[in-house]
């Protein structure tokens, strides 16, 4: 269908075109917020005997952050080099996408079975457990996983840092636990809703079995429902990744940017610049994730426009 394909390409092209604009807005927003920070404006007066330097004009800090982002060369203290930036981006995307993949593979079937068997206590328990997993704070989840899988059952060697495949398992599980919670919940409710609709009865009247009804008829509408809920969750997925990086001492973007109050409270090299670089990186991540979700949505749903 050339019409459909053309429409999808146009919609996605528009979304991609908007991303740089939004990122520019984020950089300006970060610098503007940085000016609100009392710690940033009184930075020089901390040293006695020296008069406070005039704060740099607003456009200057915007320029600094644009240069920093453009050259991927951030920071003044321990040099944050280009290689380090790219490497940490790579590590964080492995964690984020890996956890999304794992939670989809585990969570969607669990949600489907829980929706199809409302009277089966086993599947109901599995679904309730998954929802509970999604509500445990990731910092605590990391502790529980370490003490269960590495120190308790000795299944995964305990290691901090990044290097081998084994290092990625527990962090990915930590983030996946958060994602599984809403994946199961929304797949289950979407599936329940779809199975009530009359085209399912029509499909069954044509002699389709339960497996065929689910696979051919119910799965796509249920997944489109899930995808609409997935978009707003992407920022939280990313922050869970940051927490997992902190817990497992992994050099991802969270660790590299050193996201904590001190970063913004006592600025390393101008708090506006730090903040806008952080917003830029995270905004880019979230926008790319949302773009992928939009593509999947358009691909799944023939009614979408």
């Amino acid at each position: 269908m050339p019409g459909k394909r053309y429409r999808i390409i146009r919609v996605i092209g528009l979304r991609i075109a908007v991303i740089p604009m939004l990122l520019c807005i984020l950089i300006i927003l970060g610098n503007a917020l940085g000016y609100l920070n009392p710690a940033a404006t009184s930075q020089s007066s901390a040293i006695p005997g020296l008069s406070a330097a005039k704060p740099a004009p607003f456009w200057h800090s915007v320029y600094t952050s644009l240069v920093a982002i453009g050259t991927l060369h951030w920071g003044t203290g321990p040099q944050i080099t280009r290689e380090l930036v790219l490497r940490s981006l790579e590590i964080s995307s492995i964690l984020t996408f890996g956890s999304l993949f794992v939670s989809a593979v585990v969570g969607i079937p669990c949600g489907i079975f829980a929706a199809l068997k409302p009277r089966n206590p086993l599947w109901q328990a599995v679904s309730a457990f998954c929802v509970l997993l999604g509500q445990v704070p990731p910092a605590d989840m990391a502790v529980i996983l370490i003490f269960t899988f590495s120190l308790g059952w000795h299944l995964i060697p305990l290691s901090y840092g990044w290097g081998s495949v084994a290092d990625a398992i527990l962090p990915i599980m930590t983030v996946a636990c958060f994602n599984i919670g809403y994946m199961v919940k929304y797949t289950e409710s979407g599936m329940r809703e779809v199975m009530q609709r009359s085209f399912i009865a029509a499909a069954r009247a044509r002699g389709a079995g339960t497996a065929s009804v689910v696979a051919h008829h119910a799965l796509r509408p249920a997944l489109t429902g899930l995808l609409t809920f997935l978009g707003p969750q992407t920022p939280m997925t990313l922050f869970c990744t940051v927490i997992a990086e902190q817990a497992f001492a992994i050099p991802g973007i969270g660790t590299m940017l050193g996201i904590k109050v001190t970063t913004y409270g006592a600025p390393a090299f101008g708090s506006g610049t730090t903040l806008s670089i952080t917003l830029f990186i995270f905004g880019l991540f979230i926008m790319v994730l949302n773009l992928l979700i939009d593509i999947a949505y358009l691909w799944l749903n023939p009614l979408a426009d």
Binding site: R197, S198, F199, A202, A205, R206, G207, L303
Partner: peptide, 18 residues
Amino acid sequence: GKDIGVVFQNLAEGFNPY
């Protein structure tokens, strides 16, 4: 379907929209 066919009411829902 094979021995007994069903014609449903013409709701928009009679066929799977997907």
